[in-house]
Design a protein around this nucleic acid. Structure first.
Lengths: 231, 231
DNA sequence: GATTGACTCGTACAACGTACGATGCGATTT
DNA sequence: AAATCGCATCGTACGTTGTACGAGTCAATC
């Protein structure tokens, strides 16, 4: 979309924020990207993807709707920033990467999944390409650990992507089928109708109660078994 | 959203379509869900998710915008139907499921991925929960093959979900980073900026040229090695 | 004091999904 | 034949959204 690589130097680059500048009546602490993103995450947590509207976001910030556009190009960017902000990774408890690479990978990927499950809207935003620094940081860390664990240079990209794919797939599936009780009942009924067309699904209660966490870990184990050469 | 399970019997259930009923001047073949969905897929292929608007869809069909709403509840449903329609599976060339379960699974999952890559918008629609008959059919088939291959009942759901997660994750990643040449150049430049923060990504050219297809197959192999008990 | 640049916001507009009700038409009933 | 009914189409209109535009405020600098 923004293909033409012109200068387009409309963006502020950096706000000096010299004084508090009381601005209203001494209450609202002035706009900033950080505050905008944090409030956007709040709003998304509370009302989902559809609940994030520029006017509402501005309201929560005690600002006019159009004020946001000085800090942000458009709504898309708010989504991108919110997504990346939720994926920050503070690293494993100790520095054990080299010795226990498997533990390090597990920790990072489970934290990844947990972070996204804490903010279910994040999964549905993932397919829209937004490579923020936190996401890149996770990919970088993943590559570094795998590389240290003995994965050959030629296999590195494949290994990184396999794990990434698995994690985001699992997260998307999980948030997608994390039905409320009402939905469960409805699904149950809808499926009962079709039990003769989908007997296996019906018998294993695939959509109703799967052990998501156990399945995630087990699949991850298998993947790692294959990706990293046994020593 | 549509939680209240009232009767809401507004939907037509079945159109008899008794006569061609020349309707206009003998040209347009009258509206139907099938035609609406097929045209929606065309439009999505041509212009992406953002390009599908009810008015435009109606235009392409030679109909008024509001005419669509007799066949369809809302735009969401158009998305759901388009997604499912693209995921139809005609089955493996021969009937070899029992003997060559690995081949059968590979065939189905690679076809799955290929179908979605042929319609890149489909990946971004997946996280919105829409279990059409074709998707359910694929899950059912997957379960049946795995079960026949010797996966224990207790492990079945986990195995199904692991494979499903992997496939949709891989597809989403692939469509997400399938950059045009312009985007590639832009990404290259943006990354050059950060090469000291992400040296591993930079060195392995992770975002620029990965062997997507090879990585997909390899990871799938590893998953299957783990999921299905070796005989 | 004048100018500048960072920042805010009220107004306005175009585009969208779709509610509502009118209309046409074939089949059925009277 | 006339009246009725159900399927199907569509024009108009409304509310909501993202955001373009330009005017406004205030502190820092000249």
């Amino acid at each position: 979309m923004a293909a033409k690589g012109g200068p387009q130097d409309k963006r502020p680059q950096r706000r000096a924020r010299s004084l508090p500048s009381m601005q209203q009546a001494g209450s609202e602490p002035a706009l900033s990207i950080e505050r905008i993103v944090a409030t956007a995450v709040e709003l998304l947590d509370a009302e989902g993807v559809g609940g994030l509207k520029m006017r509402r976001l501005a309201d929560r910030l005690g600002a006019g709707a159009m004020s946001l556009y000085w800090h942000v190009d458009n709504k898309e960017e708010v989504f991108d920033l919110a997504l990346d902000s939720v994926l920050e990774y503070r690293g494993p408890p100790q520095r054990i990467e080299a010795a226990d690479w498997r533990g390090a990978i597990f920790h990072m990927l489970e934290d990844w999944r947990a972070s996204m499950l804490r903010h279910p809207w994040s999964a549905s935003l993932l397919p829209r390409r937004a490579l923020g620094p936190n996401i890149l940081g996770r990919l970088e860390l993943l590559g570094r650990i795998l590389s240290g664990a003995g994965v050959a240079e030629a296999d590195l990209n494949g290994a990184i992507w396999s794990l990434w794919n698995y994690v985001i797939g699992a997260t998307i599936t999980r948030t997608n089928f994390d039905l409320s009780d009402d939905d469960m009942a409805a699904a149950q009924q809808r499926l009962a109708h079709l039990s003769e067309k989908y007997p296996t699904i019906e018998r294993s209660r695939l959509l109703l109660d799967s052990d998501w966490d156990g399945a995630f870990r087990k699949g991850l184990d298998f993947l790692l078994d294959g990706l990293v050469p046994r020593l």
